[in-house]
Simulated assay, not measured.
Amino acid sequence: MARIVLATALRPAAAHAKEIRVSAGTLEEVLSEVGSIHPQLYERIMDSAGVRRFVNIYLNDEDVRSTGGLATEVGEDDVLMVIPAVAGGSTEDGDLHRES
């Protein structure tokens, strides 16, 4: 089975699992299976247009956007890493919304 490794920020949507094992197939099929197991996780990864803009998925360390997107074949021994983009920060005193 293919292995999906989840970034820490996504784990609460997957019952705090660090990884999920699913059947091989296309990335779209793999993510559909993820959705049947963890619907909240699926919603964090996908939207009506496909993989959310700020979610990065790597197949064996290669960005799936450059390997065929949802049509990318995922093999039984492959590893997918799902990583949401993280942005933000704070000022020195911790104020996130300080205006100049």
Rank of each mutant, 00 (worst) to 15 (best):
M1Q: 14
M1L: 13
M1R: 14
M1P: 09
R3W: 03
R3C: 02
I4K: 05
I4N: 04
V5T: 09
V5R: 07
A7P: 06
A7V: 03
A7Q: 04
T8F: 11
A9Q: 08
A9R: 10
P12N: 13
P12Y: 15
P12W: 14
A13Q: 12
A13F: 12
A14M: 06
A14P: 14
A15P: 07
A15W: 07
H16A: 10
H16W: 14
A17F: 11
A17K: 15
K18Q: 15
E19A: 08
I20L: 14
R21H: 15
R21L: 10
R21C: 11
V22M: 00
V22I: 11
T26H: 01
L27G: 09
L27C: 07
E28D: 12
E29C: 10
E29F: 09
E29W: 09
V30P: 13
V30G: 11
V30W: 08
V30N: 07
L31Q: 07
L31S: 11
S32C: 00
S32T: 06
E33F: 03
V34R: 03
V34E: 03
V34N: 07
V34A: 00
G35A: 06
S36V: 04
S36H: 15
S36L: 14
I37M: 14
H38W: 06
H38M: 04
H38F: 15
Q40L: 14
Y42F: 08
Y42I: 00
E43Y: 06
E43D: 08
R44S: 09
R44M: 11
I45K: 06
I45M: 06
M46F: 09
D47M: 09
D47P: 12
D47S: 10
S48G: 09
A49I: 12
A49E: 15
G50A: 04
V51R: 00
R52S: 02
R53L: 09
F54V: 06
F54E: 05
V55W: 01
N56P: 01
I57Y: 03
Y58P: 01
Y58E: 02
Y58G: 00
Y58M: 03
L59N: 05
N60S: 08
D61K: 00
E62Q: 13
V64S: 02
V64F: 03
R65L: 00
T67Q: 12
T67C: 04
T67D: 04
G68A: 03
A71Q: 13
T72F: 03
T72M: 01
T72R: 05
E73V: 04
V74M: 07
G75D: 12
E76A: 13
E76V: 11
E76L: 11
D78M: 07
D78L: 09
V79D: 02
V79R: 06
L80I: 00
M81D: 04
M81R: 08
M81I: 08
V82G: 02
I83E: 01
I83V: 05
P84L: 01
P84C: 05
P84Q: 05
A85M: 06
A85D: 08
A85L: 04
A87K: 10
A87I: 03
G88I: 02
G88Y: 07
G89E: 08
G89C: 10
S90Y: 14
S90Q: 13
T91P: 02
T91E: 13
E92L: 15
D93N: 15
D93A: 13
G94F: 10
H97Y: 14
H97Q: 07
R98K: 15
R98Q: 13
E99T: 11
